[in-house]
């Protein structure tokens, strides 16, 4: 098995910019799926709109490219209708948490089994570099020429508060961890959120003088620590990586199956 068994080769080279972290996520996702030994027919990928959303077109799964922010809502219909399918929902930070914020909260609250991968590049890339809800205070963007005054979300805390039963974070630098966490998120029986810090050298990097793709990945290496690390106490600005939440709670589709079992009329 190789990566090429899981992609739609005819669409390569892909449309992402040189050094875009989304390709690294795609790369790790394929290895995660390969390691699980799943049939491609069992996997449905539902995406919204934006650079991140194009990932669904490149994988040889059932793929649905929907409308901006609503991927989780479409995915909820698919999963409720066919709970046996593995549903993966890759989203950008704006897609998941600005226009799609409400759906994100409620999918987490329901604890419906699906894997939400938030590819957080802190910018709207497809439209040319406007600030997103994850850009953070003082970031530069094409719609924040004087510096952003919006504060960013903490995706992990938000997901936990909303009820997600698996919450993790990693970066495109930590590719083994990335692949392992995607695998764990897919295996989790409930709503799982994986935030991946992914570089956008074209817009975020350029506007914020964060360097090229390798330099941005160096930052991920140097400015993140494993969750629970001592270093975080000394340097609170470090970003934690790893699994923040993993717990078992009743899963939505299984709960609904119980409702059906109890109330289904006997066939006469």
């Amino acid at each position: 098995m190789s990566v090429k068994d899981y992609i739609r080769e005819r669409f390569f080279p892909h449309m992402w910019c040189p050094g875009c972290g989304h390709g690294v996520v795609l790369n790790a996702m394929i290895r995660a799926v390969e390691s699980l030994g799943m049939s491609k027919n069992e996997i449905v990928m539902v995406s919204g709109i934006g650079c991140s959303a194009r990932i669904s077109g490149y994988v040889d799964f059932h793929s649905m490219h929907t409308i901006h922010g609503r991927a989780l809502a479409f995915a909820t219909g698919i999963k409720m209708s066919r709970p046996e399918l593995n549903v993966i929902v890759p989203m950008g930070d704006g897609d998941a948490l600005a226009i799609g914020g409400n759906h994100f909260l409620h999918a987490a609250r329901r604890n419906i089994e699906m894997t939400a991968i938030v590819m957080n590049n802190r910018i709207y890339g497809m439209t040319g570099g406007q600030f997103s809800p994850l850009s953070g205070y003082a970031a530069a963007a094409s719609t924040a020429p004087y510096g952003n005054i919006d504060h960013g979300f903490d995706i992990a805390k938000l997901s936990e508060a909303a009820g997600a039963t698996f919450v993790a974070r990693t970066t495109t630098y930590h590719v083994h961890e990335l692949s392992r966490l995607i695998r764990d998120a897919i295996l989790h029986e409930g709503f799982s959120v994986l935030e991946v810090l992914t570089q956008c050298p074209t817009y975020f990097g350029r506007y914020n003088r964060a360097g090229d793709a390798p330099e941005m990945m160096e930052t991920y290496k140097n400015r993140t620590v494993a969750v629970g690390s001592e270093k975080k106490n000394q340097d609170p600005d470090l970003i934690e990586r790893g699994v923040f939440v993993k717990k078992e709670l009743p899963e939505y589709c299984r709960e609904y199956e119980k409702v059906i079992e109890k109330n289904q009329q006997k066939q006469t």
Partner: peptide
């Protein structure tokens, strides 16, 4: 549920129509 079908109360009308499109597919 009586006929083995599925009912979802979604968070708004946008997600409601999105969910039925997904289910129909």
């Amino acid at each position: 549920p009586q006929i083995g079908g599925r009912f979802l109360q979604m968070e708004d009308e946008i997600s409601s129509i999105c969910a039925i499109i997904g289910a129909s597919l």
